[in-house]
């Protein structure tokens, strides 16, 4: 390669990078809305599986408030015939290789956990992902909100996936703490 081609080489690399950036940007702007919509319907179907046949209303959205100190992403209420059945917390904790997002359903009348679902994660397949499967998550059902949950103590952690297990437990504890201070009867 000739010496005076340094400029053309840099320019070409710049052009290639610019083309790639524009391509990613264009795909992102066309798919972002569709992805957001499908995420919303997915979240609704998760709501449905915790409190069936209810009406859901988001009463707190951290995206708008931008509270960085809180790991709670959003909070929704489930109402049926005018009565508040329960609260649905969406919270995240950083796990082993990704943010583990969990949906935590709490019964408003008896202050007990109804169900915990992990809605989003990219943990190690086959190891960390075991802590997001029903076998692990079913342990949370019917636990009282007064109980401080702890992995390896009253929650059996998944062997080889302690970090992911703890991440889910931390999210649940954060939701429980918020429920106890603000909504507990």
């Amino acid at each position: 390669m000739k010496k005076n081609s340094l400029l053309t080489t840099s320019l070409l690399l710049g052009v290639i990078s610019a083309v790639l950036a524009v391509a990613v940007f264009m795909v992102n702007s066309t798919t972002a809305n569709i992805i957001a919509e499908s995420e919303a319907t997915k979240l609704n179907s998760y709501y449905e599986s915790i409190f069936p046949d209810s009406e859901y209303e988001v009463i707190y959205d951290n995206k708008k408030d931008k509270d960085k100190s809180s790991n709670i992403i959003s909070l929704a209420t489930a109402t049926k015939d005018g009565n508040v059945l329960g609260y649905l917390y969406l919270a995240y904790t950083t796990g082993y290789s990704s943010d583990v997002v969990s949906l935590i359903g709490i019964n408003a009348t008896d202050s007990k956990l109804v169900k915990v679902i992990v809605t989003k994660q990219t943990e190690t397949p086959g190891l960390g992902t075991l802590a997001t499967a029903p076998k692990f998550l079913d342990q949370f059902s019917d636990k009282s909100t007064d109980e401080e949950l702890k992995a390896k103590d009253n929650i059996t952690a998944i062997t080889g996936a302690t970090i992911t297990s703890t991440a889910v437990v931390n999210s649940v504890n954060e939701a429980l703490a918020d429920f106890n201070t603000n909504y507990k009867k």
Binding site: M1, T9, L12, L13, I16, L20, A21, V24, V27, S38
Partner: peptide, 30 residues
């Protein structure tokens, strides 16, 4: 034939990363 030999590695990395990102977004959406 377009990529200059001297900067081929960064160009490849850019192309691969953009490709994977675009495919991920398309699969996620559709």
């Amino acid at each position: 034939k377009v990529i200059p030999a001297a900067v081929r590695i960064p160009a490849y990395i850019g192309i691969i990363a953009a490709l994977v990102t675009i495919i991920e977004m398309l699969i996620h959406a559709y």
